[in-house]
């Protein structure tokens, strides 16, 4: 059992502990230094909550006997906050083409569903079905939902988590709107934790980053991520040595986070959520005006030119002994 626990990632890996614990002291320092500001910000939040609206989709009805993957194999079985056996998950996976479409097409449907429908918001950690019902979540929520749907449809899925540095538009939109967040980020030079998912298709792990809706990407001037697009180097720069591959989230992952976003820094969290929501509205206008495909093609071209690729050719004078 211990092995299974460890495999599933229930026990927090040392690297993750280091990443999160290493980041917390500077946050606490920042919060302690500005108690009045934080209090005011939390009070204001109570009066002025941010409304992200109802989800734009209906969750399909679960019908007894819908097929789903019952395997206890690694990356297919349920893990903490990622339950592929939940009825709503099974129903949605079936609706998105599980066991009917080829693997890639099914995975793409899952990816697009999560990406287009789940809005990024800094809510407390909870289950994949909570995310689905609410229609909002952090990147980690969205990864759990993505992984649960893939697993329900019989595709292996896992998490890839790391600390990162952000590109300028994201920094302005997410970090700078909150002085607390800004001090924290600036002290660390990076953001504590982000993740992408990976889904196993045709013998390969394919990266999936459903974090941003197309509207938000348009507002930030980013290409519209597709299944297989890695955000590394596009909008984020992972910190060396922080990348971890996990089957599941560890227990306790949400404790500090929930305390932070639901209580200690609720006001700041709402500022960031609001800022992101405003951006999504602007992004919608951009996409309506240009058309999604046209927008993506133009931005993608710009990004691809940005970091040139170098092919490693053999150099005769380099001698390896």
């Amino acid at each position: 059992m211990f092995r299974e626990w460890r495999e599933k990632g229930y026990i927090m890996p040392a690297r993750m502990l280091r990443v999160t614990m290493g980041a917390l002291p500077s946050l606490i320092k920042v919060l302690l230094r500005h108690p009045v500001y934080v209090m005011k910000s939390n009070l204001a939040a109570r009066k002025n909550a941010v409304d992200l609206g109802r989800p734009s989709y209906e969750i399909p009805e679960y019908v007894e006997g819908m097929p789903y993957c019952k395997s206890n194999e690694r990356y297919l079985r349920p893990t903490h906050l990622c339950n592929p056996h939940a009825k709503e998950i099974i129903a949605l996976a079936n609706h998105l083409g599980a066991y009917k479409l080829p693997d890639w097409e099914f995975a793409e449907n899952v990816f697009n569903f999560v990406k287009k429908n789940i809005k990024l918001a800094f809510v407390g950690m909870d289950r994949e079905v909570d995310t689905l019902r609410r229609g909002t979540g952090t990147c980690v929520h969205q990864l759990s939902l993505f992984a649960a749907l893939c697993r329900a449809g019989g595709l292996k899925a896992r998490y890839k988590l790391y600390s990162l540095a952000l590109v300028e538009p994201l920094y302005e939109n997410m970090i700078e709107v909150s002085p607390i967040m800004k001090s924290w980020y600036d002290a660390l030079g990076s953001f504590m934790l982000h993740g992408t998912a990976e889904v196993y298709i045709d013998g390969e792990w394919v990266v999936a980053d459903p974090t941003f809706t197309p509207e938000y990407e348009a507002a930030m001037g980013l290409p519209l991520a597709k299944l297989g697009d890695d955000p590394m180097g596009i909008w984020n720069y992972p910190l060396e040595g922080t990348v971890m591959l996990l089957e599941g989230l560890p227990y306790g992952v949400g404790v500090a986070w929930n305390f932070l976003v639901n209580f200690l820094a609720k006001g700041e969290r709402i500022k960031i959520d609001r800022s992101m929501n405003e951006a999504r509205k602007k992004g919608r206008e951009i996409l309506d005006e240009m058309g999604e495909e046209e927008y993506d093609a133009s931005v993608r071209a710009k990004y691809e030119a940005k970091i040139p690729k170098i092919t490693l050719e053999k150099v005769p004078n380099l001698v390896f002994e």
Binding site: E313, V315, N317, L318
Partner: peptide, 25 residues
């Protein structure tokens, strides 16, 4: 955006516009 290990040496050499002298690694 560099690789590590031996590839790092190859990367450096490919970056260079002048002749790479004999380097023994």
């Amino acid at each position: 955006d560099y690789p590590s290990g031996r590839d790092f040496a190859v990367w450096l050499a490919n970056l260079m516009s002048t002749e790479v002298p004999k380097v023994v690694i």
